Amino acid sequence: MAEQHTPRSLIVSLYGAYGRTPDNAPLPVAELIRLLAALGVDAPSVRSSVSRLKRRGLLEPRRTSDGAAGYALSGDARQLLDDGDRRIYAAGEPHEDEGWVLAVFSVPEAERHKRHLLRSRLARLGFGTAAPGVWIAPAALYEETRHTLQRLQLDPYVDLFRGEHLGFPATAEAVGRWWDLAAIAKLYEEFLDLHEPVLRAWSTREPSPEEAYRDYLLALDSWRRLPYADPGLPAALLPAGWPGGRAATVFGGLHGLLRDRGEEYVRAGAGGASD
Rank of each mutant, 00 (worst) to 15 (best):
H5D: 11
L257S: 06
E109F: 13
G84H: 13
A103E: 12
R124T: 10
G99N: 15
G75M: 10
E190A: 15
L199C: 08
T21H: 14
G19Q: 07
A273M: 08
R146Y: 07
M1T: 13
R56L: 06
L258M: 04
P169N: 03
R20D: 08
L254C: 08
D260N: 09
A130E: 00
L233M: 02
L220V: 10
H195F: 15
L122I: 11
L218G: 01
Y18C: 00
R34Q: 13
F105K: 11
A37V: 01
T148G: 05
G245Y: 07
Y228L: 02
R115M: 14
Y216R: 01
G245H: 01
P197Y: 09
L118A: 09
V41C: 06
Y228M: 00
Y188V: 00
A270P: 00
A30F: 05
M1W: 11
R121E: 14
W223Y: 08
R200L: 15
A137P: 06
A268Y: 03
L32V: 04
A37I: 05
L58K: 04
H5F: 15
A248I: 03
L199Q: 07
G245Q: 04
P7Y: 10
S48V: 12
S51D: 06
Y71A: 03
A30T: 01
P207L: 03
D159N: 07
D85C: 09
P209G: 02
D221R: 09
P239F: 01
Y157M: 06
R20F: 12
Q4D: 15
H113L: 11
A247D: 04
E164F: 10
A68Y: 08
K114H: 14
V134E: 13
A212C: 03
A17T: 14
S222V: 02
Y89K: 09
Q153V: 06
D215I: 00
L118P: 14
A2M: 13
P169V: 02
L117Y: 05
H147R: 15
L58Q: 01
V198F: 06
A91K: 15
A240I: 03
A140Q: 13
R177K: 08
L218N: 00
A69G: 10
L217F: 01
R225A: 09
H255K: 12
G176Y: 08
A185Y: 11
A103T: 12
E31R: 12
D215K: 00
I11W: 05
G271A: 10
D275I: 00
V46I: 02
H95N: 14
E143F: 11
A137W: 06
E210S: 07
H195N: 13
M1H: 13
L102V: 10
L149G: 03
G16A: 15
E263M: 08
G256K: 05
G16Y: 15
A229F: 05
A247H: 08
N24F: 13
A90Q: 14
H165K: 01
S9F: 12
R121N: 08
E96M: 14
G133E: 08
P132G: 09
D155H: 03
E93H: 12
G241E: 09
D215G: 02
H147I: 03
R205Y: 03
W135F: 09
S13E: 12
A103F: 09
G244I: 07
R214P: 00
A219G: 01
F251C: 04
L59P: 00
K54Q: 13
P231V: 01
G99Q: 15
S203A: 14
V29L: 14
R224F: 08
L10I: 13
D180S: 12
R177D: 07
Y188S: 10
V101R: 11
F127D: 11
L73M: 07
E144Q: 10
